[in-house]
Amino acid sequence: MKKKYVVGAIALALLGLGTSACSNDSSSNGSHSSKTEKVKNAVSNTKSDVSVSKNGFKGNKYSTKSGIITIDKITNVKVNDDENNPKNFTMVVIEGSFTNNSKKAVSPEDWVMSNLEINQVLPNTERELETPGNNEHDNGTKWDDLFKNSESKVIPGKTIKFALEYDLESKTDKVSNIYSIQAESAEDGHHIGKPYKVNAGSDNFTYKDSDDDDTDTDD
């Protein structure tokens, strides 16, 4: 009886060890499988991000998950005042359309500043136009409504035409005939794809001082 008891106990112990080993192997395999899946997913996501990051401008259009922008034209506008005095300067007018693909309202100006780098192409260098101006937004130019649209927040899913104004100082800034528009990441600023290059047109505008208009009204 004692022998049978001992043999039975040994058999049960061996059975327990075998079950435990199988359980550990299964757990180990499950853990390894889980880790493998995570790595595969990470690689897949990275590849997806890389493929997206290679897509810059296609023609004059640049598309992202947050918006689509189309560049219609760029014009160098010589601004003169009534007296042709040193106030004269050139404003660069960029016209286009913007579609808001995000879930929040955003202005074309804010979207452009986050997603595009706009450069003048000079003979030996490129010079970035950093911040849009607003000197001529209410002075009777033919772009007034488009200037206002650039600052208006576009509802998600809607499209609007706009124009941005960049002012060049007459004494320090050179006027270029070619502009390079580079798509860039809104997260870290790295360049995406090749730049879209535009030949600029030319135009003129005569500035009227608002103070003069007030004086005429008072008379």
Rank of each mutant, 00 (worst) to 15 (best):
K174M: 09
D216E: 09
H191P: 11
N55D: 10
N119I: 00
Q120T: 00
K38Y: 15
N115I: 08
I160E: 05
S66T: 09
K58P: 02
F98R: 06
K58F: 04
N88C: 01
E128F: 04
G16L: 08
D110K: 04
I10G: 10
K54Q: 08
G67M: 00
N124A: 08
T90V: 15
K78D: 13
K78I: 06
S202G: 12
V39W: 13
D203S: 09
P132L: 09
S210H: 08
P132W: 12
S152Y: 05
K35Q: 10
G67C: 00
V52D: 15
V7T: 03
G133H: 02
N24C: 10
L164P: 03
D82A: 11
D72Y: 00
V198Y: 06
P156S: 00
L116K: 03
N60D: 02
L14H: 01
E130H: 15
H32F: 08
A13S: 05
D110M: 00
D218Q: 08
N135C: 04
A13T: 07
G96R: 01
N55Q: 15
S114P: 06
R127M: 15
D49H: 12
D82C: 05
Y179R: 01
L168Q: 12
I71K: 02
K54V: 10
L122M: 10
N199M: 10
M91Q: 12
S34G: 08
D219C: 13
E136F: 11
K35E: 13
N85I: 13
S20T: 14
V43K: 07
Y166S: 04
M113A: 14
K3A: 01
V112P: 05
N84D: 15
I68N: 15
I160S: 03
K4M: 13
M1V: 01
G201Q: 03
V39F: 11
M1W: 01
E128A: 12
K148Q: 03
K58C: 03
L146P: 02
D138H: 14
V7P: 01
A9C: 07
I74L: 12
S114L: 07
K197H: 04
A21Q: 13
L129P: 05
D81T: 01
Y5I: 10
K4Q: 15
G193L: 00
N80F: 14
T99K: 04
E165L: 04
T141A: 00
N45V: 02
V43Y: 05
K208W: 09
A200Q: 03
K104F: 04
E95T: 14
T125Y: 08
N134K: 06
P123H: 03
G201F: 02
N139H: 15
D211I: 12
K73F: 10
S202F: 11
M113H: 06
T206Q: 03
N124C: 08
A200Y: 02
S185Q: 12
N204D: 03
K158A: 02
D167N: 14
K161P: 03
T19N: 02
S185F: 14
H32C: 13
P86S: 11
A186H: 07
T36D: 09
T90W: 11
H32L: 15
S31F: 01
P195Y: 07
L17A: 14
K174G: 09
A200C: 01
V154Q: 11
K174C: 02
N80K: 05
K58R: 06
T159L: 09
